[in-house]
Simulated scan of single mutants.
Amino acid sequence: MTSITSTYDPAARVARITLADPERGNAIHPAMVAELGEAVRTADRAGARVIVLASTGRFFSVGGDLRGMAAADDMAAHLDDLADDLHRVVSDLQRSRAVVVAAVQGVAAGAGFPLAAAADVVLAGRSASFTLGYTKVGLSPDGGTSLLVHTLGLHRTLRLALLGDRLDAEEAYAAGLVARVVDDADLETQTDAVVALLAAGAPDAQATAKRVVRDAAEPAPEARLRAEARGITAQAGGPEGAEGVAAFLAKRAPVFGDGD
C-alpha cells in the first residue's frame, strides 16, 4: 500500500506530494521515506518550480513508526538506514531549485517536525502543532532537528528537544517557523494562493534567493544531518532506546538508568 501520493502540473510546473497514510498518522517508516524521496527526485527531474508537501487526515505526521522500529531485528541498523534515507530527502528538499511549501494541519511530531521545517515556506492550519519528543522514548533527534537552530534559536530548540514542549501554530508563527496561520478549512485554498504567487514569479531569482539564504544559514547541512544519524543510531543500540520504545508501546512510564 502506498504511503505517498504525488501529482505534477506541467503547465504551472507545480508538484504536489502528499503523505497519505492517515490510519497510521502518516508515521515515518522506510517504505514511506523511499516513496517520498522518489517523489521529490521526480519533481526535480520534471523541472518543478514549486513543490507542495502536504498530508491527509488529522495529522501532518506523528513521527517515526515506533512499532516498526521495535519489530526490527536490529533497531540500531534499522534507524541508521532510515535516518540516512530521511536525511537525503531533507537535503534534496533544501537543495532543490524548487520553492518548497509545506501545508501543516494537526500535529507534526518527531521527525515530522523537521520534515515540515525543511520547506522554504511553512503554512499552518490553526490545529497545527510542532513537537519533538525523541528524548521521551530514549532517542536523540534526527530528521534535521539540529537545523532548527537557524530558525528557532539555540535555547528554544534545546527546550523543544529536552523538555518535549509543543509549539502551537501561533507560537510557531511568532518564532519565525510558520509564514502564515489560517483556519484549517482554508489551508488548501491559502496554499493554492501562495503557490500561484510563487508560480507567477521569476524562477531564477527565486532559486538563487533560496540558495544564497540557505547557504548563509548552513552551508553544509549534510554534515549536521549525518551527525544526527550517528546520534540516534547510537541511542537505538543502547539501553535507553530499547527501554524508551518498549515503554511507549506498552503505554507505561519509561525507567532510564543514571547515564554515564
Rank of each mutant, 00 (worst) to 15 (best):
R95P: 06
D81V: 14
V107Q: 09
D84Y: 05
V99R: 02
M75C: 09
A76Y: 03
Q94E: 15
R88C: 12
V101Y: 02
V90W: 01
V104Q: 12
A117R: 05
D80Q: 13
P114Y: 11
L86A: 02
F113Q: 05
A119V: 07
R88G: 15
A116C: 12
R88W: 01
D84Q: 15
G106V: 03
D85W: 10
L115D: 03
A76S: 15
M75G: 03
L115M: 13
G112W: 10
H78M: 04
L79S: 12
A109T: 09
D84I: 13
L82D: 01
A102E: 13
R88Y: 02
V90F: 03
D81T: 15
L79E: 13
S96G: 15
V99C: 07
V90Q: 01
G110Q: 05
R95K: 15
L82W: 13
A117P: 11
H87R: 02
A119T: 10
Q94A: 13
H87W: 00
D85L: 03
Q94D: 15
A103L: 04
V101K: 02
A109P: 05
G112K: 06
A119G: 11
R97A: 12
D92C: 06
A117E: 08
H78I: 02
R95A: 15
D120C: 05
R95W: 10
R95D: 15
A98E: 03
A76C: 08
A103V: 04
R88P: 05
G110E: 04
V89H: 00
G125D: 10
M75Y: 05
V99I: 15
D81F: 01
V101T: 08
L93Y: 07
D120P: 07
V104S: 10
G125W: 06
A111T: 13
A111V: 14
V121G: 03
L86Y: 03
A83F: 00
G112D: 11
V99G: 02
A119I: 06
A98Q: 03
L79V: 12
V89A: 00
A119E: 08
D80W: 10
